[in-house]
Design a protein around this nucleic acid. Structure first.
Lengths: 142, 142, 142, 142
DNA sequence: GTGGTCTAGACCACA
DNA sequence: GTGGTCTAGACCACA
């Protein structure tokens, strides 16, 4: 069962953190179609956030077509975001695991690692089609 | 000069996005001590957000000891977060650039790439000291 | 400006009523792209429902791509649902106005009128393609 | 036998949908005094909702004086809502059937048709007695 | 001033 | 028991 962690000091709304963590789990295949998300009550017990906030996140996921809230039953995954290439035993996965291990061993913090990857993504997307999926295009000035 | 990109619709407050992007640039050494941040006016022109929002972010950065707001002059970096190991020409950088290129070539989206790295970080930190810097510790249940 | 009316005894959630009334106004062209919806405060003054409930409705409309919530500014229509054929001066409009007038004159209640139209729609859609847009297909038994 | 269709996703509670559909059938004369409603079991088979939900709706209809629940026998219509003017072969019925056919032929969706009729009703009732039966009076501001 | 998040708590819908 | 709506109120983000 997915284990949400809410970082209360990050400035990112709690419900956004739940949505993001759920989407990541879907992309990684950690959550599959039919899987049950934790009940609001369980999330409350684990994270000390309010059940309304959990439901707000689940509703957003529902409107994104990823889960279904069934009253009296629970919340269930209805769509996968799993990617070929991101499986547990794929070469890319093995490589990144290895790379992260070395980065951490060299003393880099979690934030350093994410900064390096983000920088690599930015550099890549600037060189290629800048409207690659996932990177928000620059906002036009109004 | 750092080029902020605000993703309205991400749910993350605009000022948080500015702070995060600035910190990443500091970690990567893209911004160095003495460098000038864009003026609020320039950011407004580039992102269509309100100058107050930019100043809010700069004040947060100032309180974190990273920049200094000099009235009438601008905002300047006062502390580096650059890491040995994250330099432009370090092996880790070359490897991650290469890895990202291959991941993108295999059709993975930006979000997939970030999900894979986050998963690798989570797995690593769970195996080692789970209170590694940067990863918020689990909240205690109340 | 659109004038919401909440029927508290209908069993239909208040936020759904706001969403439905807004969509109807968009379909009729009563609301156009760029138009401002009433502020939450104004709706509260007019309907005695809670501002959170209004915002819940506006958020749903935003996720449907119909409006944009701009903090500090208000909520604005971003997409029209206006239909050729439904304009104020179209033959269909004139005919239905006339028909409603006669139905009411014969003593039929609002609910009777809606029941007759719904019945006519059901009959029509059963004869033609039953998956015509707007009518939910029968749910498969599980 | 009346054929209930539950639109999950409409935001309208399932039991309200059953009540509304039953009332419409009574207004149209599709259901007459003495007619039997489907058993909860039959509705469950057709709609995949829980029998308790069906019973909840039937109890509401009973309290409205429209049906009677007879233990072991079933649920029976005890009162008609049929209206002169709404019969199958009335001029108003023929006209609305014709009008709906043309509206659909012009590409209008079910929701467009209902929006047009609702707009016509609103316009009519605003001009005449605004407390016409069936339209909820405006809520007084608090 | 306008929208946004979050909470606690009441009550409801559904299984 | 699980999700859903609504409220009042506190505090925040943004213009």
């Amino acid at each position: 069962m997915i284990d949400y962690r809410i970082d209360r000091g990050s400035g990112v709304p709690a419900y956004v953190q739940i949505v993001e963590q759920t989407e990541r789990a879907l992309r990684m295949g950690f959550l599959k179609v039919g899987d049950k998300l934790p009940t609001a009550k369980e999330v409350v017990a684990a994270t000390a956030i309010n059940p309304n906030t959990v439901l707000r996140a689940y509703r957003d996921l529902e409107q994104a077509g990823l889960v279904e809230l069934r009253r009296g039953l629970g919340t269930f995954v209805t769509r996968s975001l799993a990617r070929p290439g991101a499986e547990d035993d794929s070469p890319l996965r093995r490589e990144v695991t290895d790379w992260v291990t070395r980065a951490r061993a060299e003393g880099l913090e979690r934030a350093d690692v994410l900064a390096m990857v983000t920088a690599a993504l930015d550099a890549h997307d600037d060189e290629h089609d800048s409207h690659a999926p996932g990177r928000p295009p620059p906002e036009p000035a109004r």
